[in-house]
Write a protein that binds this DNA or RNA. Sequence first.
DNA 1: TAGATTGTTAATCGATTAACAATC
DNA 2: TAGATTGTTAATCGATTAACAATC
Lengths: 218, 218
Amino acid sequence: MPKKCSCLVLRRLAIYYRYLSQLPSESSHALSSAEISKQLGIKASQLRQDLHWFGEFGHQGYGYDIEYLKGQLCNILHLNMIHPFIIIGAGNLGQALANYAEFERDGFILKALFDINPKLIGLRIHNVEIMDMDCLESFASKNQISIAAICTPSNNAQNVITRAVNAGIKGIWNFASPNVIVPDDVIVENVYLSESLYTLAARLDEGNKSAFNELNAH
Amino acid sequence: MPKKCSCLVLRRLAIYYRYLSQLPSESSHALSSAEISKQLGIKASQLRQDLHWFGEFGHQGYGYDIEYLKGQLCNILHLNMIHPFIIIGAGNLGQALANYAEFERDGFILKALFDINPKLIGLRIHNVEIMDMDCLESFASKNQISIAAICTPSNNAQNVITRAVNAGIKGIWNFASPNVIVPDDVIVENVYLSESLYTLAARLDEGNKSAFNELNAH
DNA sequence: TAGATTGTTAATCGATTAACAATC
DNA sequence: TAGATTGTTAATCGATTAACAATC
């Protein structure tokens, strides 16, 4: 067994956390691994194995106290603190992400967007300013930014990521391009948005009548 | 070896496809598995193994013809056809997705958004109309919609997905909630957007000075 | 031909699942 | 106590990597 758990485990812990957070408050105080895992479509032993990486959070014969487990997962996922973040690239995707306010609830506070396009600089999205890329380094270090979401075209990604890292950013939420190069102490989390949609299309039944039009006919 | 390749393989095929699509046209005609995989940060044997699920696309001693491989991946991923799709739930996330025009290039054409909020119905996002949820079934079957992106609150997800499936939709791009129940011939592709961000935060170094503020202090 | 690189099998590695003793 | 359910080990399963014969 390696020292560090895999990203797969962390992602499931995040799924457990979200599930527990969304339970109606009038529900019971405790749940068994069998009950939780059934709701999430996984195996109970996997849930217990995942938690086992970080300690013991349940009681034999009883299950898991919901509030306690939620608090522990919150700690494990570092959601008990503010994460100021910025978005680099204020095109469609960057603006879309800025408008998706959901993250604020969990302490991810958007401080600024950055772009090189003079037509965008100065505009406000979701009440956050789009700033000139030239200001990236000074802004990031002054405001102790920990995370940058990368929403530039893929051929710019490595360049802006290097700049962000030099300005002290330790977490890259990367929507732009796979396989960027960063120092060992910087974490890159890739989001494969179009690839996810491609995968869905690929898995659709070939006989599916709704997708028979040739692209050329468009 | 199972009959069907895993979703992990399909996702990597999508990554290869995007990589090849983005190559400048003045680059060479052929690439070896070693060259491609180095750019993408994977092992060459994995690239060859992934392709091996679907056939033989290279030539010994020569490598892969870029245009040919791109075309074959396009077929495998079903990107050689139009996929009309809708977005269910026109809140922040649904609107954000509608504004993210990138998919159109690959044949994913947004035909409508749906919501129950009377204030949203009739508005146009990215020049596509937000329609009343009551029209979902008739619109979806009349327009041969194959894919629905689910952007409702998670407690509505199962309900709208059941309705979408009854209207003939075969692919669910699910941003709302894990573990929804669908018939065997319907494909669900989950996108874990907040979970991805949680995972990034969890992996950030504990000593990271940029994230030391208590959430309570906010 | 000699060098390069594939297709493909076999070996390794890691993740998931099953099982059950411990114990509430 | 008896029943329930955890924590944890061991077994299984699947995915990744290495190796190399085939061959361009």
